[in-house]
Simulated assay, not measured.
Amino acid sequence: MIDLTLIGIGTGNPDHMTLQAIEAMRHADLILIPLKGAEKSDLAGLRRKICADHLAGAATRVVEFQLPVRDADHPNYHQGVDDWHDAIADAWLDHIDAVVGQHGRVALLIWGDPSLYDSSLRIAQRLGRVRKTSVNVVPGITAIGALCAAHAIPLNTIGAPVTITTGRQIRDHGWPDGADTVVVMLDGACAFQSLDPQGIEIWWGGFVGMKEQILRAGPLADLAPQIIEARAAARAQHGWIMDIYLMRRNR
């Protein structure tokens, strides 16, 4: 059996590592680190640093692999994602077979938390179809929690719900029905531009929790151009950006 552990490592700050996460790393026979191209080499570098900081004296092997690239031009978005996940599962299995064979403890270090807008659990299910696999999850600090902490704001208003969605959904369907507070993830195109900004406050963060952290907060009508500019400048400087934002509608 393969004992697969998905370890939440927070949003890029080494201090986000929990004692449970460190223990899981040290008990693994193999940790897989995906490589996402030169423009995102910092992501692999942060994982390497976490391993170097916490694996001293452990027998854990660390192996890097090239992460398959999603076909962004696939005519069917969901099918394109499914094909991509199949390719990632195959890459995991190839390296697991090469290092630990049929039996062993394998771990992956997941940004934020493996349960929230991350596909690792779905990919792990694919692995279980071809190899007897036990899947364990170590929770991590989410980008949502880190964003609210950075701005020192509560996630919700009193007794009110919160909607967590994606930039694609905001772009295609607008403000979610029945929501006063909306958290938007995976938005590479600043979908807030498609909304009527009147009465909306926004709390935005890029590289939240990391030393490169950028924060903006205020009325969406005033801040939208500033956020777009700051995001573009940060992406040009680093080659990549992770960002997230919370919007609240005043009623």
Rank of each mutant, 00 (worst) to 15 (best):
P139T: 13
S134C: 08
D118T: 00
S120E: 01
W92C: 03
S134Y: 02
N136S: 11
D118L: 01
T142V: 09
W84H: 15
S115A: 14
H74S: 14
D73H: 12
L109G: 11
Q66K: 13
Q125Y: 02
L121K: 08
Y77P: 09
S134H: 13
D118P: 00
S134I: 05
V138P: 03
S115E: 10
D97K: 13
V81F: 04
Q102R: 14
P75Q: 12
V138S: 06
D118N: 08
L109I: 11
D94Q: 15
G104W: 06
H74L: 12
V137T: 12
Y77Q: 10
T142L: 11
G128P: 07
I88R: 07
A87P: 05
H78C: 08
H85L: 14
A89M: 08
Y117I: 11
A107D: 01
I96Q: 14
I110E: 09
W92K: 02
W84K: 13
D118H: 00
S119T: 15
V106F: 07
A89E: 08
G80V: 09
D97C: 04
R105G: 11
Q125P: 00
R131N: 03
I110Y: 03
P139G: 14
V81W: 10
S119L: 07
A89I: 06
V106T: 07
K132C: 04
T133S: 10
V81P: 00
I88W: 03
H103V: 13
G80S: 09
P139F: 12
W92V: 02
Q125G: 04
V130S: 14
H78D: 15
R70W: 05
D83K: 00
L93R: 05
I110H: 02
L108F: 11
T133P: 00
D113R: 05
I88A: 08
V100F: 05
L109P: 11
G128Y: 10
L108Y: 02
S120N: 04
L127N: 05
G112A: 08
V138L: 09
A98C: 03
G128V: 08
V81I: 14
H74P: 11
D118Q: 01
P75T: 11
A89P: 08
R126S: 10
V138N: 08
G80I: 06
Q102Y: 06
H95N: 12
D113S: 04
H85I: 01
A107G: 01
I96G: 12
V106E: 05
D71E: 12
H78L: 15
L109Y: 10
R126K: 15
I141G: 01
H95T: 03
Y117G: 10
D94A: 15
